[in-house]
């Protein structure tokens, strides 16, 4: 079975905005982080991979199949788990009912098998205790876990998570990482985020997207290394820096092209991200 996704020249425009601009990617098993500021095109890319949006141009092969063909698309959807950035819930359904409903739509027709599977995913995200509760009575964190639970039904080979940690408190975030890092069968997991901590904590590979263009593709460690030599500290602010801020110890940390003789600092992944995403990330940071 071909567990990978391939994109070639994938482009999607909204009016004059290039949400994605000729994106080429091949992604295999394991957890890949899709890092980028708001408006980078992460959601657009995940929607295309989730077969709910067709690109304007370019070729996509998902799990060895072509999402433009109806039969292939159905087969992809059978093996796909998708947690949208803003998941919708049937507020008047109970937690169990909702996941059961998604289970039917995932074509798990054997009732007892399906119910077992629903219990498994609910247990996995720690929602067993509220399984009989109406969704409208759940907290925000519980809802995000519910969205994750439905995506995990039937052990997808391709798992797409759009900003799954947004709005989670540190403890919930930790629990989320535990769930995603321990999935059996090594599916292709693509996780979008604008938080570098998620990437460091979870991902073997990171893709930085900004303005619809892939700016970096590699391991979190090589990404951090890419900033080496481009971070320095000084007692005065350097106006030539791409970005600078005053740290707790009163010194200024700068990123950009250092002047001769600057005091080089150990780079972090955040430095690298700011360098890669450039202006896009700065507008978000401010």
């Amino acid at each position: 079975m071909n567990n990978s996704i391939e994109l070639e020249g994938v482009t999607k425009r909204y009016g004059s905005v290039h949400a994605l601009d000729r994106v080429d990617l091949t992604i295999g098993s394991g957890i890949t982080g899709l890092l980028g500021p708001n408006g980078a095109g992460k959601t657009t890319l995940l929607r295309i991979l989730a077969t709910v949006l067709a690109p304007d141009s370019g070729a996509t092969v998902l799990l060895g199949r072509d999402p433009a063909m109806s039969d292939d698309r159905t087969e992809i959807r059978r093996r796909l788990g998708y947690m949208p950035q803003e998941p919708g819930f049937y507020r008047n359904f109970t937690v169990f009912e909702f996941v059961d409903y998604v289970g039917i739509l995932k074509q798990i027709t054997d009732r007892s098998q399906r119910h077992d599977e629903v219990r498994r995913v609910l247990d996995h995200v720690d929602l067993t205790e509220v399984a009989r509760r109406k969704i409208k009575a759940l907290s925000g964190g519980m809802r995000r876990r519910l969205a994750l639970a439905q995506a995990l039904l039937a052990h997808p080979d391709l798992l797409l998570l759009d900003e799954p940690t947004a709005g989670l408190d540190p403890e919930q975030r930790l629990r989320f990482r535990a769930v995603v890092s321990q999935l059996p069968n090594r599916p292709v997991v693509l996780l979008s985020t604008h938080q570098t901590e998620d990437v460091v904590a979870l991902c073997e590979r990171v893709i930085v997207l900004a303005s619809g263009v892939v700016r970096f593709d590699g391991t979190p460690m090589t990404m951090t290394e890419a900033a080496r030599g481009r971070v320095w500290t000084a007692t005065e602010q350097d106006i030539g820096a791409l970005l600078s801020w005053r740290m707790g110890d009163g010194k200024f940390r700068h990123i950009g092209d250092p002047p001769a003789g600057a005091a080089q600092a150990e780079p972090t992944i955040d430095d690298a991200y700011l360098l890669l995403a450039g202006r896009d990330a700065l507008t978000v940071a401010s």
């Binding site: 077969t51 159905t74 087969e75 998708y82 949208p84 803003e86 998941p87 819930f89 995932k106």
Partner: peptide, 16 residues
């Protein structure tokens, strides 16, 4: 209810 609860997108990604 898909429209009301904004669940259309996630259900579009399912095989049925």
């Amino acid at each position: 209810r898909d429209d009301r609860e904004h669940a259309r997108e996630q259900h579009d990604a399912l095989p049925v």
